[in-house]
Amino acid sequence: MSSTREQLIELLAKQGGSFVSGQWISETLEISRTAVWKQMKQLEKDGYQFEAVPNKGYRIVEVPHKLSANTIQWGLHTKWLGKEIVHHDRISSTQTTAIEYAQEGCDHGTVIVANRQSNGRGRLSRQWYSDNDQGIWLSVVLRPDISPMKAPQLTLVTATVLAEVIEQISQTTPAIKWPNDLLLNNRKLAGILTEMQAEQDKIHYLVIGIGINVNQSYQEMDLSVREIATSLQIETGKTFHQTTFIQLLLECLERRYQQYLDEGFHLIKASWEQYAYKMNKEVTYQTGKAKQKGFIRGIAEDGALLMETESGRIDSLYSAEIDWFSSDPGATVRKTLTSKQQEN
């Protein structure tokens, strides 16, 4: 990322639609008029359009829809998240790349984003279908100064942020399946994968991978997940501008992350529970080898799932295989109409 180009975008962006002279830009950025012109040519390749009028100067007339580090940063109101953005058209996995960057010592807040992933992955290296440019595929590197024991809360912070941003953008309310899957009408809309490297008392890095199915049509969804996954387009019939989506996501994540560090988990907990999937419903779950039934009763102050067992005791679950769907046959019935009607 050229910092000159970053400054140039910022400079022009601040002027809104008004003209600035090439002379003024060259003086402010301390580069030659030729260099200014070269930078603009580069930006045009990213899809920016400038209007140049003699004696008046330049102005931005169009910001590209095309995803790039520049377009995401243009108008991104964050202090540290996404100050460094690495964008690829196609990459094996943003998560794998982000971990490599993290190990090489990249800054807190670095974002790796791709139009498509050839080998997107979920937990335990399960495949995440993302070899299309209709979704949002990105990973964020964080270096929080908190105890590794608390780090799992950040997966719930991220889930809450996703739910809030999806709701704001699409006017549909997703549900969060503990701890961090997002569902719409019982189908998976977005997933989060958090990987960390830490010592007993210090986090080296934490990489949060986010995948959101945005503009895929039903036919564009991979056959193997068509009946269990969904996209915002399928649910609402609308398409969404990915750059704006990512900007909102990063802004909200930075705000919520800061709030979590400053004030603790309780505000996140409250928001998370508003989106909780199967709240007060019965599910089957397995911890270690024991299989049992219980009712979801929300989350604890540390983010653990509160499960009321058959004997009436409340257990805190940190890690469990939960069978969310089979105990409720009605869950497999699709109710897309509901959300479509909301839109119309």
Binding site: A151, P152, L156, N180, L193, T194, E195, M196, Q197, S319
Partner: peptide
């Protein structure tokens, strides 16, 4: 793994 956070232990 806790709450879907995967901690690689060295």
């Amino acid at each position: 793994e806790a709450m879907k956070l995967f901690n690689e232990i060295e």
